[in-house]
Design a protein around this nucleic acid. Structure first.
Length: 296
DNA sequence: CACAATACCTGACGGC
DNA sequence: TGCCGTCAGGTATTGT
């Protein structure tokens, strides 16, 4: 599933292969892929034609391509093509005559006649839309991304400010980690991996965490994400791939996620799976004991 | 306002 | 063989 490291791998690919190029035509093959573009698919395609992709940026799991005029300079309006991969979205760089993917949703062609960008998405939770840029704390963000908190790999990420907000909450630590308005980029996989590294149970009340423990947890979040990034992200199947269609290798480094019944790498106890928010949480029952005052 | 639950979606897989 | 239930889960929306 694409979380922050996977989206960053895609961002780098798009920066290398598409930034600086001018779009010629855009084809929407499935309207649901642009459902967040309120004016509709025709408006989406019409407004992109002739625009240059001037930069590829990211916050958390959101990716956006800044749009410039044909000469390539950023336009005064400040507009971006926002991309969210959802659960199964892929952004691929493909020759125009390459076979159509089964779940091809949007095709973006370029004026230079080179490889096109394809948005492929089996489960259609992801999508593309156009948005104006607004300034938040000195950073230009698309309007729909403005409510998302900085991610742990950003310069502006301030762990002490996050710790203060965490400690005032009345919820479990994993729910808080997954709340993109508190910290962005963390999904189910990296939440479980970071909690295992910091030896915290998912239901631990945030209010009971000390500042040093919260710092330790976010060090673990940062470490696990950077390690994943170095090997191209996590993929269990063909659903997550970089722009060249290649899978990452971080699945081989997972300590608990998806490892139910296998021995904990630290103590050997059998990793357990709990139902959590209509999905799963994986923990070591010995290293991450369930607190008595658990926030279930 | 804070927090929790649910809807949205498709395909793989196991049981019968 | 094929049907059915379950699971995967990020985010917007709805409910308390």
């Amino acid at each position: 599933m694409p979380e922050l490291p996977e989206v960053e791998v895609v961002r780098r690919g798009v920066a290398e292969h598409a930034v600086g190029r001018t779009l010629s035509s855009v084809e929407v093959l499935h309207p649901r892929a642009v459902r967040r573009h309120v004016p509709g698919p025709d408006d989406f395609a019409g407004r992109l034609a002739g625009r240059c992709l001037s930069a590829a940026r990211r916050r958390g799991k959101y990716l956006w391509l800044e749009l410039g005029d044909e000469a390539g300079s950023p336009d005064s309006g400040g507009e971006a093509l926002v991309v969210h991969l959802g659960m199964s979205g892929q952004l691929l760089v493909q020759p125009g005559d390459a076979r159509e993917e089964k779940h091809l949703r949007v095709r973006l062609r370029f004026a230079d006649g080179g490889p096109e960008l394809r948005f492929v998405d089996q489960r259609t939770f992801g999508g593309l839309h156009l948005a104006d840029l607004v300034e938040v704390d000195g950073i230009a963000l698309p309007k729909p991304v403005a409510h998302i908190a900085p991610d742990p790999l950003e310069q502006v990420f301030a762990v002490d400010a996050v710790a203060a907000r965490l400690r005032s909450r009345r919820t479990g630590i994993k729910r808080a980690l997954l709340d993109q308005s508190l910290v962005s980029g963390v999904g189910n996989i990296y939440a479980d991996e970071a909690l295992w590294r910091a030896q915290l149970h998912w239901a631990r009340p945030t209010a009971t965490l000390t500042r040093p423990k919260i710092r330790e947890l976010f060090d673990a979040v940062t470490d696990v994400m950077q390690e994943a990034l170095q090997v191209g992200g996590t993929s269990f199947d063909a659903l997550y791939v970089n722009v060249n269609g290649e899978s990452g290798y971080f699945d081989r480094s997972l300590a608990v996620y998806g490892q139910a019944g296998r021995p904990c790498r630290r103590c050997g106890a059998s990793v357990r799976r709990d139902a959590f928010m209509n999905r799963s949480s994986y923990t070591c029952p010995v290293c991450q004991p369930k607190p008595r005052n658990a926030h279930l």
